[in-house]
Every structure is written in C-alpha cells, then in structure tokens.
Design a protein around this nucleic acid. Sequence first.
DNA 1: GGCGTTATTGAACGTTCGTCAATAGAGTGT
DNA 2: ACACTCTATTGACGAACGTTCAATAACGCC
Lengths: 197, 197
Amino acid sequence: MTATTRTRLSPDERREQLLELGLRLFAGSSIDEISIDRLSEEAGISRGLLYHYFGSKQGFREAVVQRAADDLVAQTAPPEGDDPIAKLLASLTAYVDYVIANHQGYRSLVLAAAGGNEAVRAIYERARTRMIDRTFETPGVEALLVDTPRTRLVVRGWVAFVEDTVLTWCDDANGVTRDELVQIVTDALPALVGTAD
Amino acid sequence: MTATTRTRLSPDERREQLLELGLRLFAGSSIDEISIDRLSEEAGISRGLLYHYFGSKQGFREAVVQRAADDLVAQTAPPEGDDPIAKLLASLTAYVDYVIANHQGYRSLVLAAAGGNEAVRAIYERARTRMIDRTFETPGVEALLVDTPRTRLVVRGWVAFVEDTVLTWCDDANGVTRDELVQIVTDALPALVGTAD
DNA sequence: GGCGTTATTGAACGTTCGTCAATAGAGTGT
DNA sequence: ACACTCTATTGACGAACGTTCAATAACGCC
C-alpha cells in the first residue's frame, strides 16, 4: 500500500511545484511554524530533496518570498501612459484588486517581510522600490513631486499608509466600498506631499 | 573555580532581571535567533528556571514585548490639556524623542509585533490603541475628527505612516531635522482626514 | 534491453525546546 | 547556633527539528 515509487521530475518542474506549495502553505501560517517534515510530506518528497533545491530552510523561505514579490509586481503593472495621476490611480486600483484577490497570501508576504531576516526584508524592499519607481517614472511628474529628501521620506511613509489601510480594510471593510478605498489611498499622496512643501 | 553557588532571588527580582535581559538582547536581534541556552547562560541561571517563570520561550517573548510596549506607552504620555492640536503635537514630539532614544529597541518591538504570532501582535495592537485613544479623548476633538468608519480607517493608516516615517528617518535623516519630522507627521493627520471627508 | 546521468532517498548527527524529580539557599522559630 | 520548612533553582532526560551525505533508482539515450 505504501506508494514507494519515487517520481522523478525535471529540476524546473520540481522547483515550481515546491514554490507553489510554499506559497499555499505560506498563506496560512508563517514559514517557521511549518517543519521540513510537514513540508516534504505535503509535497510527497523526502526532506533531503528540499535541501537539494534550496540549500536550507531559510533559502526556501527566501525563494518563496521572492516568488510572491514577483507575482505582486507583475500583476500590478500600470498601463502605458503619460498622465501621472491616471497612472497612479490605475496602479493603486490594480494593487487594491490584487490584495483583495490574494488577501491571505499578501498578508503573509508583508508579515514575512516585516518579521524576516535581512535577506527577506531586502527582497520585499526591492519589490516595493520597483513598484514606486515604475509609477513615478513618468514625464511631467516633476510638477507633482519635487525630488527632495523630505518628499522621499513622505512617499515612503505613504506606501506604509497604503499597505496598512488596504489590509485593515480587507479584514473589515466596515461599509467602505472598494472605490472609496482606492480614492482614499490615491488622494492621500498629494495630501501628504502637499504638507511637506 | 566554577561558581556553583546558586543565587536565590525573590520571584519579583528574578523576573525583573530576566525581563531586562530580554529587552537588552532584543535590541540586537529577534528573540528566536537567541537560544534558551544563550539566554540562561547570559543571565547566569539554568534553562529550567526560565521555563519556571515564563512557561515557554513564546511566553518569555510575550512578556518582554509587553514590557517594551508598556515602556513606550508610559514614556510618551501627553500632558493634561484641552487643546487637541497641542496634545497631538506634544504626544508626537514625545513619541519621536522616544524612538530617537530607544531606536534599536523600538525597531525590535515593531518587528516583533509585525512578524510575531497572534498573541504578540495583540499586545502591540493594544498599546497602539491606548496611545491613540489617549490622544483623542479630548473635549472638542469632534470638530476635527468625526467618528466614521472611514475616519477610523484613515487614522489607523496614519499611525502606520508615522511609525514607518520615523523609523526611516532614524536610519538616515538625510538632512531633515527633528522638528521638521515632528511637523511632517503632525500635519499628516489633518491632511489625511481632510481628504476622507 | 542495457547503460549512464542525476534526481531522489533515508538514515545519522548535532542542536534546541521543553519536562520533571531532585537539590539547596534563605528565612523562621527555638 | 541549629534544625526545619518552604520554594527557588538545578541538571539530566526525551522529543522534535534542521541539516548532511553516501547510497539508490528513475528516466533518456544508444
């Protein structure tokens, strides 16, 4: 009855399978609450194989976080266009919709990024930077955002505002609609930057 | 040469000693990067004693976080007064100064709260709520903040904005002065709430 | 159908968390 | 000073976990 037949996949397939499993388990709990035993059992492989592919548990965690971050960046790409405000609105709408759809997974990503070690935080930080840069690398944006240390500080804080607000809203919308939420986080940027001038 | 003489303290003293050690080690690294072995060795006690006082490593972590949160709340008490704006400014000034002084420890607290489990997060959440409530339980505040779901959402997001901005500033002030920082985070609240109306 | 490459295994090791009966320090009464 | 009690404290033990590595077997190729 014990299915002792080992299934041999190509490295790419196996890696893919393990990463997807990681994302799935990630959604429910922090990764260091899950033992390698449980991971390998759930994947139907031996403990050793996980080490063969990711070197260590930490390596596995980093790979999964990297994958989640890439997903986020890919699925929230703003449309091509010249109007900074429109781009911002589109980008935030995509972001909000992504968080709504991947609610649990996204929360885990943020938690992992916050609580993880230096390497994990760096991965998330890079994704964040990519998203911000991409939105603001638009001709004509200088009129809205003059590049000063103060503005950079405020924009970074604004990102924290957006993340926290959207996640809180996901837990309990409390009557606030999706469109209102998008409006709130979009309007917040000019409002904050305005006070900084 | 081995000082095998065990020192017997009163439960309160021992508890205090261990909590202070926890705060000290906390500042440098996350608590689950430190083994009970190292903790007990540094405290000059046996492993068993730590379990006697805190039940588990998780229990110890929670106690330390609770202590850190209490410190934060205690040291940022706003002055008695009726003017909401003045109270807000005073409270934020105290908060900024606290973070400046306890930079590392405070960062660890926030990281522990973000990355920790449900119980740890709840402890920090309570402290946060206490600080917010205390600032806004002022006669006449209704003129500034009408209590709607939308406002609550924004105020919560604003707290995230403040935390992130102050911590980022601590890492690299980039020419922004302390007073400017206080001004930024203070002005941010009316700016954000204004857009929500 | 045999062969070589390499994906995969499982047992073994060191470390860390957590438990518990045994031990000894400090106050108390005589 | 001494014995006695209470309980703070210990240290050895077991289970669980991360990690390593030589052995194994599945698949593509000739």
